[in-house]
Design a protein around this nucleic acid. Structure first.
Lengths: 225, 225
DNA sequence: AAAGTTAATTATGAATTCATTATTCAGTCA
DNA sequence: TGACTGAATAATGAATTCATAATTAACTTT
């Protein structure tokens, strides 16, 4: 046993921040919805104090919006907000790519290569679930590989915000194919340890994701169900 | 009176987040120091509840560190942390530069030009106080000019963390002169609306700041007082 | 006196209570 | 009927209380 490992003792509010953020990102709590303190307290079995502490944190992270004397609402996912968020996330992705190229070791690289193959299989099978999983694994591994806590934190929050958008529009076949191509390129650049190239490609990958999303949203506007 | 202006009603915890963050950034609360809830409550005239809510937020922002059952401590400013923070901030600065070039209007540009002149005067007079002020104004204006809330938020937090480092080492004459040169270049690029160029220069500006800081810290290590 | 042990004190995390603000809903009047 | 008023209800923000964990202080024991 590693004695330098600090004993994991989590407080209620920390637990709640994670749980509630998840509920928001997973679209269980819907955008614009009020967050009923009492109800949540009852269902989670905690008092209002830690719940409210968690809400303040979530508000600072941008997942809920607080209005004085009117409690908390789940933050809505507007197109304007996405158009602001993606470029920031893309900048961080670029840095992730650069650093990962420089810092990752062989074991990490192999793990990514394995996830990449999983991703390709999932694509062949058109298995969205498995695709998202493998995709997440790759990006997670790249971030770990960058070895930068600050980057990881900020990336995590922005990525979570962006992830909420997946409930707004489906991944189109076209975009899916393009994403696969981009990932192939990323693997090549990573293999070649081309930090600059990987950074630029990852940034572009993110911005293309935004383009596809905007396009999908516009298509929706034209044919409202 | 503008009736569309929403009535500003701030809650205690919001106020406290700002106040406490300031105390940390301004080095009133020293790194590593314990944050005594009771004392702060007394001196600020609030109960523990809103103070503790504020501490949770500050912790998520990285200004304090919470230990279960042992309260909050002011986060220390380590070299490793700075070496992680600066590259992230530099990435965001790059984006700020690119966007500001594209989005700023003539009025904003003139305001920056004016602050830039103030900065040069302060440098001639070797007035550190005035220099920092003008410098802040310029960077603040650029961020506003980028018109991106998300970028502004994340930038604000990282910049605040980095600002704490100024109590670790003084601005050297050499670095000061270099910074002035970089700012001159920035103004030229902004005037020319060279988004790419300004972005790169601002990124470099930030990374050079880190280099100077690290150099100063290393010099300190060699000659400990 | 120094290290170890136990009791007293303090500080913390969380629940509860209290005062105030929003919201709902019944009743009134045009 | 439908907009307005005001009382009743509910929800919120903040203070207080309570249980427990950490720290300090006092006391042994060697």
């Amino acid at each position: 046993m590693n004695l330098t490992d600090s004993i994991k003792r989590t407080t209620l509010h920390e637990e709640l921040v994670e749980r509630l953020r998840n509920l928001v990102v997973e679209d269980v709590l819907k955008p614009g919805e009020k967050v009923p303190e009492k109800q949540l307290c009852d269902s989670l079995g905690v008092s209002r104090t830690p719940l409210r502490e968690a809400l303040k944190v979530l508000a600072s992270e941008g997942f809920v919006v607080l209005q004085a004397n009117r409690g908390a609402r789940v933050a809505s996912v507007t197109r304007a907000e996405l158009e602001n968020t993606f470029p920031v996330l893309a900048s961080l992705e670029q840095l992730v790519g650069e650093l990962a190229c420089q810092q990752m070791d062989a074991v990490e690289f192999q793990r990514i290569e394995s996830s990449h193959k999983d991703m390709l299989s999932a694509y062949e099978a058109r298995d969205r679930q498995a695709y998202f999983k493998a995709n997440q694994d790759i990006h997670q591994a790249l971030i770990q590989g960058a070895r930068n806590d600050i980057l990881e934190n900020h990336h995590k929050l922005l990525a979570a915000r962006v992830r909420r958008a997946r409930f707004m529009a489906n991944l189109s076949d076209e975009r899916w194919a393009q994403a696969i191509d981009e990932h192939e390129a990323m693997m090549e650049l990573l293999k070649a340890r081309d930090a600059d190239g990987l950074g630029k490609t990852m940034k572009l990958h993110m911005m293309n994701k935004l383009s596809a999303l905007v396009k999908a949203l516009e298509a929706q506007d034209e044919t409202p169900r």
